[in-house]
Nucleic acid binder design. Structure first.
Lengths: 400, 400
DNA sequence: GATCTTTTGTTCTGTCTCGAAACATAAGGC
DNA sequence: GCCTTATGTTTCGAGACAGAACAAAAGATC
């Protein structure tokens, strides 16, 4: 089986074999938890040592793999040459959210090479001004990079509906932006030829759960992801891949929880966000809307009635909405991210109970709710990972 | 690009090229609306005529392609040899639903070679007895097949939660069955070695929309499918492929439409099925539960208040549930199948309006509701198509 | 009716890539 | 110092496709 190379079917030839196997070797090294030798690569991929060596040599020559110093470990036989993903290649991940701006550079090993995160309230801000600020942040980050680092792509996580192919943010309710083409606004700040691909924040944050470093599987591979920012975004991950219509999807926050509920700014009624969004929870708990996330946790843990009730309502609403999602996509694992991750321990018991009673297949696969701490601005990391995906899918492109 | 061959990555070798290209050629011929010549195959796939001819020759020798008589069409040049998918290969599709049993044999050209459909009320029936009846139906169908027909697989569409890998029906609420392994019960009636793979009815019926004949794209490739049987099943189709956790998914009928609604037999409250299921609609319209589907259409078209109200409620409930699905998966096309297809014209105006107001991305991609008539027991056809998929994915397997 | 043109299908050679097996290398073990 | 073991390299052969020339079968033209 050749690895999936999505898109229009086209014929295979000898060079396809090479391309496929180069990708396979690179992904194998990336997926491994530690350095691999050429012989390890041969064993894992199933090619002969001769072939593995040929492929590795080519990737090393192109900088996609690095040979590192051998650890002195006492073992018989000729010592192996440890291989790791090349440090020369990296991607730029950006994020603009209602609460922060972030620019981060992640290399093929998954290391953060450089980053800048700037909190701030960007609700209702001017898109052009904000993009300029983000651009300055980006320029700052890029200026500090090693000269030999090769940026292979860039992405921008945005909290809204994005048409990734057209590169357009269609609508971001919590920012108050719509019909925006961010690549153009950022162009003055990034190297020429590096185009910034926008993507949905939840989709991209979900990637960081499915994939901890480029090609390296995370703890969960099939799950429904909920990204609690000001709003609530979501993503469905199947086999480690975010599914859905690329950026159009994931508006879990606007799933209807109660058709008789209050009207939402989106035009519908009783949306999940009105019960479990950050502002809804804080308001119900009697806290100011700019209260730090930990406050609600502390109040609820202390048994403060309004806070407990707020979380109860939130868990109920999440239960109704997520049960619908689980019934439709059939994945019983829910991963909470963003501010919902901090509330996970308090939400879990009630939420799991709601899910168990509303999900048809619960008897066989009981839904479970987990959380991942994740870095701040996970969307930026996800955007970088997505850009690096192209390298893993077809490294031959970079070998000229 | 080689076609997706899902599963664990493994290395490519020369034989992979051959396997990939054999599949590509077969799929190309299947996807074409009319017969192709070797030269056409070369042009479409991008291989040289020499290679296309070699591949075609091998497929013809194996019976996967047939050379047919040339139509006398006046054209210059050496006359081409028209190629069509081989008629020797076919698959068996079965369906057991609350309202019918069906056995159907579909060949690689998508033609129904033989079928038997038996209506009947199977709610609460004994699984073993019903499977025996289906088995007899199947044996009957198989007995009438041409001797040289080669059955490459078999599938069984069931209205419930199925674990396809284990081959187990976990729960079918409307049949009243659970924890059933149908393959064993059917084994006496089918040829040895042909194992019957169970699948979710809605998933399989959705296939018939995405794929009209093996490898031949249907009118829609990205849509949310709703299968109105006694219950309401659903499937999400992306790029022509049913997504979701294979048989666990698609329980749209049990998406919560109103958490304060009446209790459902599934344990939840206010499920879609309680408002838009066949029985719910008939009851609300004041019709007997076994009324033929057309009755409701006639009454509503005539303006009978109870019938109009029933459809209004149904459209509202479908709107709430489907808006949630569309918000999560981002696909704005909804295809109605089963009994909902017959009601589509009456439901569409209200349903599309509900969707437009509750779907966040409606402003850019207005949700539309369409219907496909489809054959009775579409699930059976889908099951056969799924079995034939294996042939298209890897025809080399059948070439010895 | 003979010849030209056009399109299809076939044959041949060269190139690419991998597998298999022998060989070379660099260590530890005795 | 020699044996064992594991890694990495070299050599040869086989399979598959590309490209180009060739053969075949028709219509078009004079």
């Amino acid at each position: 089986m050749t690895q999936r190379l999505a898109g229009a079917p086209s014929s295979a030839r000898q060079s396809t074999v090479r391309t496929t196997n180069l990708g396979l070797v690179l992904r194998t090294v990336c997926a491994a938890s530690g350095p691999l030798s050429r012989a390890d690569v041969a064993a894992v991929t199933g090619v002969t040592r001769a072939t593995a060596a040929r492929l590795v040599d080519e990737l090393v020559a192109g900088g996609l793999l690095d040979e590192v110093e051998r650890e002195v470990l006492p073992r018989r036989g000729r010592p192996a040459t440890p291989l790791v993903p090349g440090a020369r290649f990296a991607a730029l991940g950006l994020q603009a959210d209602a609460g922060l701006l972030a620019a981060r550079v992640v290399d093929l090993r998954g290391r953060v090479v450089a980053e800048r995160v700037a909190p701030g309230d960007l609700r209702g801000s001017d898109p052009a001004a904000t993009m300029a600020t983000l651009g300055a942040l980006t320029a700052d980050v890029l200026a500090g990079l090693p000269a030999d680092l090769c940026l292979v792509g860039a992405g921008l996580a945005l909290p809204g509906v994005v048409d990734a192919e057209a590169g357009v943010l269609l609508r971001a309710p919590n920012l108050g932006w719509s019909d925006l083409s961010p690549a153009g606004l950022l162009a003055p700040f990034v190297p020429a030829g590096l185009d910034v691909v926008p993507g949905n924040e939840a989709d991209l944050a979900a990637r960081t759960v499915a994939e901890e470093a480029p090609g390296q599987a995370g703890p969960y591979r099939d799950f429904v992801y909920l990204s609690g920012q000001i709003g609530i975004g979501g993503a469905v991950v199947l086999g480690g891949r975010v599914t859905g219509s690329s950026g159009w999807a994931g508006e879990v926050g606007h799933v209807c929880v109660d058709p008789d509920g209050p009207p939402c700014s989106c035009g519908s009624t009783g949306c999940l966000e009105l019960y479990a969004g950050r502002h809804a929870l804080l308001r119900a708990a009697g806290l100011p809307l700019d209260a730090p996330p930990g406050d609600l946790v502390r109040l609820a843990a202390a048994g403060e009635p309004a806070a407990v009730a707020a979380l109860g309502t939130g868990a109920w609403a999440l239960g109704v909405a997520l049960a619908g999602v689980v019934n439709v996509v059939g994945i019983p694992t829910v991963v909470l991210g963003g501010h919902l991750a901090e509330l996970a321990d308090l939400l879990r018991p009630a939420l799991e109970e709601h899910l168990a009673s509303r999900v048809l297949s619960a008897r066989w696969r009981r839904p479970r709710v987990v959380s991942v701490p994740g870095p701040p601005a996970a969307g930026a990391s996800g955007a970088a990972l997505q850009a690096l995906d192209g390298v893993l899918a077809d490294p031959a492109r970079l070998l000229g």
